[in-house]
Write a protein that binds this DNA or RNA. Structure first.
Lengths: 191, 191, 191, 191
DNA sequence: TATGAATGAGGCTTCATTCAT
DNA sequence: CATGAATGAAGCCTCATTCAT
């Protein structure tokens, strides 16, 4: 029973933090940010309110942290498929990436939308997200330009918009949306 | 001096009701439903909090009323373009209808999204809206079927999703979105 | 169509006033004083709130008026049976009087109790009622004194208390109380 | 320094809960349920409004808790005198029990009456209390039956009614009521 | 580190009363 | 005489946050 090293403590902290964020994400997505009380999150995580404030300075800080982490994951998914974007096959990978986010992190995605429509909250995260998207749009625009498309930038935007639109409807009524099929059709539409 | 007639009362009520709804729509869209207090709405309308409850039984009733009115307007716009959907030109009219809603009732549209991501609120209006959309999607699917498309229903859904996606980004950053241009490109994509 | 005389107006006013009081008594008794809004009373009487305030200066004034009228009726019933109180038959009349109040004006009686337990309200009426009761008790005490009872005053009080006790339970659960039978038994107990 | 144990928390909770209930009982009895605001209770207990809701889910829950506790005490008093009810001496004990409640828990008793005349409030507690009373009445009826009384049930009811009647007047004007004396006279009347 | 009692500002709602018409 | 729109104070309740232990 040697005393725990600093590093071990740090790890415990990190784990706790993630636990809380995961619980909060679930609740925020399911019940909405404003309708989820800090007490509820603490209870759901089986810790005390006090302890929660040990990890996050405020409810909004908790939200920010969740969003930041979500955007990180978002980046990871994009990086997995990051390489030249010249051939239709590579475009397909991009589209697939977008759908993967919907598939893998539905709660985060839902929260993202919900938060984007609550102005005043979370402007930092919003900007981060938008920046990421802008880069992506730019890359895709280059692809369309290479193909000789007349409006490459608008095409790229529309592709992004469409994926978001699909995500939006997917979260409102998942049972009516066949992601795999839509993914293919979108590719046919834009390739 | 002489007492007000029933009709006068009716007019006062109607005017006030619309005033309140307009103010609330603006605030809800701008700041979010939960972040907008009844006190704020009353102040913004320059009436007392009490009076608001003379017209709406609760804050949620106010939201419902706004949504119901919005959906009505939505119907009106659709009816304006209601006719056979056989030729590409007619499809263009439909797409134009979708964009018109974004253009003419941006606040309502924004509130619609925001409310759709606030679970627990407003399930009635959500269903009303979804029904309207389902009809529309069905009509458009028939068009694609007529054209011999392999996945007419999915195509129709995607068209709807895309317009919503455009709307979504339009409300997040209007200055970066050229609605007219996008409208045309979408038409080219789907015609 | 001669113009109405002052007296006619007075009568109309009086009728209206009684209408309102009757409605309010009913509602107060059924739902409680605090739980009955002025708006409700007005609606129930089919007049406007404004008009109600034309007849009563406040909600409490309305309550006072009701109580005063009730106490008047109370007096009338007592006067009907007012005469010497020497023989058991005459005592029986007194007891009967008490029960008649319960039978004829149940709502008033119920309101009376309810109001007596809301201190701070209606002290005037309370005092009026208590005075009336004191007189009554005194008269009855004389009867018991004449019979040579050792504690005539206490006996008189107890008789009064018992009738109130019966009334109290009668209003809580009328179906379990057989007023006629109890009346007779009480008489046997005290004669 | 060291965190509080579960037991300490439990004690704090229990103490506070009773404090609040005691304060509320006093105020409810003195001023009436509706006329006593939650703010007033909190101020009187020297705690914040918020804390009160840490212990009771609503104002009505607070009332319910008070009534439940009162009825418990009521039971205790009855249990103290619980034994066969055959001889007049034993009847006397019962009557004494009734008076003890008036003497020991005057506020609860007063609140009980006041609440019984506030329709819509507290129907659960009312039923609990009524059940208790019904049992009691039944026991006493058996006594009168044993004595060969013609109307044993009515006699028992009247005895109960009378005690309530005394209680009622006692709370309206305590200084005019000599409980000890009345207790004896009632016994003479019913033995 | 961990607890949950405690606070207080602010939210939604009701309602007696006034007043222009 | 009659109406009901309008007010504003007050009521109940929630909840993010702090703090003693």
């Amino acid at each position: 029973m040697s005393p725990r090293t600093e590093k071990q403590f740090e790890e415990i902290r990190e784990t706790r933090k993630l636990q809380i964020m995961q619980a909060a994400l679930e609740l925020f997505a399911r019940e909405g940010y404003h309708s989820t009380s800090v007490a509820r999150i603490a209870r759901y995580t089986r810790i005390s309110k006090g302890l929660l404030y040990n990890y996050f300075t405020s409810k909004e800080d908790l939200l920010d942290s969740i969003m930041a982490l979500g955007i990180q994951k978002f980046h990871h998914i994009l990086e997995e498929i990051q390489h030249e974007l010249d051939t239709p096959e590579e475009l397909m990978m991009y589209i697939h990436g977008g759908f993967e986010i919907i598939r893998r992190e539905p709660e985060f995605y839902r929260l993202l939308f919900s938060v984007f429509f609550q102005p005043g909250v979370m402007e930092t995260s919003q900007n981060q997200y938008r920046e990421t998207l802008d880069h992506l749009t730019h890359d895709i625009a280059l692809y369309f330009e290479g193909k000789g498309d007349e409006n490459p930038f608008e095409k790229a935007m529309l592709l992004g918009n469409m994926i978001d639109g699909v995500g939006l409807h997917y979260f409102l009524a998942p049972e009516t949306v066949d992601l795999d099929k839509l993914e293919k059709i979108i590719f046919e539409l834009f390739k």
